[in-house]
């Protein structure tokens, strides 16, 4: 476990060094927001809160899948053997989960800003919405990191990543959409406590299972 911090530091410094990946993800988000903006450009009034909700979470889902997919897919061959020899799989998993969580959270926040800028802001209860963003980002990163580890060992891993992750993250997505709807309808925050707790429970579940299963997918 004491390898966690150096590994986390490595993830960040590596990311700062290859800025193209980070920039690519940002551009991905930007283009997606623009596509949505242009598709609706003359019909701003068509973007009802429900449509906004659906479009926003689809954008976030695809961005998260692409962000987390690269945590194992596309790493240099043999690099995993090197990691295997210096650190425990659990430390590697958690360093990736934490790192991906922060990345997902930043991208989700950027996505929200872009949506507010280009479309409109139907959100009333900002605090609950931010909590939802944080919890779902963590859920995405915890489940997708393991799946990225599985998909990276297979051929056509990019397609596989989407196929494997979709059914698994859908429960997170359903709860998140539900809470977002509450935030838009300006309901009292206490209404959203139960689904928020549920989101937290799903996060804990997914995290625990990843922790148990990752060592098995890791060894070659």
């Amino acid at each position: 476990m004491n390898h966690l911090l150096p590994l986390l530091k490595k993830e960040f410094s590596l990311e700062l060094k290859r800025q193209s990946v980070m920039a690519g993800l940002g551009l991905y988000l930007l283009s997606m927001a623009f596509i949505i903006y242009f598709s609706f450009s003359l019909r701003q009034n068509l973007i009802t809160p429900l449509v906004w909700n659906a479009l926003f979470w689809i954008t976030i889902l695809f961005t998260a899948i692409n962000t987390v997919a690269k945590s194992f897919i596309g790493e240099k061959r043999g690099l995993d053997i090197y990691y295997y020899s210096i650190a425990s799989p659990v430390a590697i998993l958690f360093s990736k989960i934490i790192y991906n969580f922060l990345l997902c959270l930043v991208l989700a926040a950027c996505g929200y800003l872009l949506f507010v800028l280009l479309l409109n802001n139907p959100m009333h209860d900002q605090v609950t919405f931010m909590e939802t963003l944080a919890l779902s980002s963590f859920g995405f990163s915890a489940s997708l990191t393991l799946l990225s580890g599985i998909a990276s060992k297979a051929s056509n891993s990019n397609i596989l990543m989407a196929v494997l992750s979709f059914p698994v993250v859908i429960s997170i997505l359903l709860v998140a959409v539900k809470i977002t709807k509450n935030c838009m309808d300006d309901l009292d925050p206490s209404v959203s406590y139960q689904p928020l707790l549920m989101l937290l429970a799903i996060d804990a579940l997914v995290c625990a299972v990843s922790y148990l299963l990752f060592p098995f997918t890791w060894k070659n």
Binding site: S143, L146, K153, P167, L205, V206, V209, F216, T217
Partner: peptide, 18 residues
């Protein structure tokens, strides 16, 4: 065998809330 076993367990657990 190993990867599909891991996915099997993971998906089964993730399906419980669903």
């Amino acid at each position: 065998a190993r990867l599909s076993a891991a996915y099997n367990i993971f998906a089964f657990v993730a399906m419980i809330p669903l």
